[in-house]
Design a protein around this nucleic acid. Structure first.
Lengths: 258, 258
DNA sequence: AAGTGGTCTAGACCACTTT
DNA sequence: AAGTGGTCTAGACCACTTC
C-alpha cells in the first residue's frame, strides 16, 4: 500500500456505461475492503480483537486517521465493535446486545423477555424453485429446511420456516439443533463459519391456515404477521430464506424510522 | 467557544446517581447541539444551505475538522444533506428521496409508484386519553384528527388515522388538506414549522372491521397490517400519533436489518 | 506504566460545482 | 478562479482499561 495512492481509473472523462464506475477510490475505502476481506476469510474470529489502529496503520503504510475512518464505517455497519481502552472486536451473535437486532418482536406491556425455542422438524431436500431463486441456487439443489416454534412469555408466538443452502450447512441435523440453546445465528456463526450481516424483510398480514393455527394454538383464520426475510453474509451473498408467522395478540413488531 | 474547552463536569469522581452524567462533553458534540438548536429555531430553513464548514469553524472558534465531525453526525441522522462542491443543506420532506423513508410500502411485483390521497375527514376534538398520553397532552386538550385513504397502483391500500396536537396545528382544515398535494409531512414542515425527524412504529396483524372493510373495498375479517406510529420532531418531542391500516394483498411493508 | 480507542488541531491537497 | 465538501497526514493530548 506504501506506493499506491488512490488514483483515477483508466477511464476517459465522462460517463461511458450505465453502471457508474467510481473514478477515485479513497484510501480509507481500500483499507476498509482489506479489513472486510480479513473478516470474511476468518483471519480474526467473532469475539476476538482485530489489530490496533496503530498496528494497522503501520501494516498498510497509511496514517492512523485513515485506518480510523475505515474502522468507523465497519463499526457503523455492525461488523466490528469498538471498546475504548480495550480495542476493536469482531462482532458476534453470541451477545444479548445483538439478539433483538434481528428478532424485532416485543411484548405490548413491558414484561420479561423469556424466550424458548422448539424444533418442529429439520430435514434435507431439493430446493423448491422459489427458494432456489432467492438463495441463488440451481433448482433441485440440496437445501436444509428447519421449522421451529418460539415461545415468548410462555406462549407459542412465532412459527419459523428456515431454508439454508445444503452445501454450506452440511451436517446440520435436528439433533445438533436440539443440543444447542441460544440464537440460531450464533450456531451458524460458530459451527458453520457463516455470519449473518444484513437482512431484508417483507411483511404482510395473512390469515392462519389450519395447520399453522394448530401449531400456534390459535383459531384458523386468525390474523398473523408474516415476515419473510432474506439474510446475507459478507458481500451480500444470500444464505438464508426465512418465513416467520408471528402471533401479534400480545406482541408487536417494532421499527425505528429516521 | 474560544475559551471553553471540554472539561470535566463538577462532579466527584465515581458515579453518584442512576442517570449517567457524562463527565466530558466533546467539543464536536457541543457544536452539534448548537447546530441542532439553529435548525430547531428555524435559523436555516428546510432546503436552504447552512453556513460552510470554514465559516462555522471561524464562528465557533474551533477547527474545521471538529465542525466536520458534528455535521457528519447530523447528516447520519438525516437532519442535513451534504452535497460535495455545493454545501450542506437542511433536509426537507419536499423531495422524492425522502418519501419512502416513512411510508415503507412497496408493490410485490416491481411496478409503478402511482400514489393518490383522499381525505375522508378532518375535525378538531378533545384528545382521547390514549392519544393525550402519547402526545404528552392533558386529557381533553384540543387535537386534530385526520382520516384519509391512500391509493397505490389505483387501489385503496391504506387507511390512515392521524392525530396532531391542536395548538401546534392551528388552522389545519379539510380544505387546506384538500388543496395540498404531496406528502403530508411536507405540508406540516412548510405551513406549520414542524419537521418530523424520527418515528417509532409498532406493527400488528388484525382483522378488518366492517367500517374499515367498506372504506378499503375488502371483506370484513380480512387480515390487515396495523401500523401505529409515533413521530417526533427535534429533541424527540412527540407531535404525531398515527394508526395506519394497510392492505397487504399486493403490497408489503419492507424493512432492512443490519 | 503501557496500550487502546477518542478528540482536536493545522495544514495540504483533491474532487466537484458554480461563477 | 473561487468556494464547497472530501481525503489524508502528523502530531498532540485525553479517557479508559489492563498489567
Amino acid at each position: 500500500m506504501n506506493d499506491s495512492r488512490p488514483q483515477a481509473a483508466d477511464e476517459a472523462p465522462g460517463d461511458v456505461g450505465m453502471t457508474d464506475i467510481p473514478r477515485f477510490v479513497p484510501l480509507y475505502v481500500q483499507i476498509k475492503r482489506l479489513l472486510t476481506q480479513g473478516l470474511q476469510a476468518g483471519e480474526w474470529k467473532p469475539g476476538e480483537p482485530i489489530p490496533s489502529e496503530v498496528e494497522l496503520a503501520r501494516r498498510y503504510g497509511v496514517s492512523q486517521g485513515t485506518v480510523r475512518k475505515a474502522i468507523d464505517e465497519l463499526a457503523a455497519e455492525n461488523l466490528v465493535v469498538r471498546r475504548q481502552g480495550r480495542g476493536t472486536f469482531v462482532a458476534t451473535h453470541h451477545e444479548a446486545r445483538t439478539q433483538f437486532r434481528f428478532l424485532r418482536l416485543l411484548p405490548d406491556d413491558e414484561g420479561g423477555e423469556e424466550l424458548g425455542s422448539r424444533i418442529v422438524e429439520c430435514r434435507r431436500l431439493r430446493a423448491p424453485v422459489e427458494v432456489a431463486r432467492v438463495l441463488g441456487l440451481r433448482a433441485g439443489e440440496a437445501v436444509v429446511c428447519i421449522r421451529r416454534i418460539l415461545d415468548l412469555q410462555g406462549e407459542p408466538t412465532v412459527l419459523d420456516e428456515i431454508w439454508l443452502p445444503g452445501a454450506r450447512f452440511r451436517g446440520l441435523t435436528a439433533e445438533r439443533l436440539a443440543a444447542y440453546s441460544g440464537p440460531l445465528y450464533g450456531l451458524f456463526e460458530r459451527e458453520f463459519g457463516t455470519r449473518m450481516i444484513r437482512a431484508a424483510e417483507r411483511l404482510k398480514a395473512i390469515a392462519a391456515d389450519e395447520v399453522t393455527a394448530e401449531l400456534l394454538g390459535i383459531e384458523p383464520g386468525s390474523p398473523l404477521l408474516q415476515v419473510e426475510r432474506v439474510s446475507s453474509t459478507y458481500d451480500d451473498v444470500a444464505v438464508e430464506f426465512r418465513r416467520g408467522l408471528y402471533v401479534t395478540r400480545r406482541h408487536h413488531y417494532f421499527n425505528e424510522l429516521s
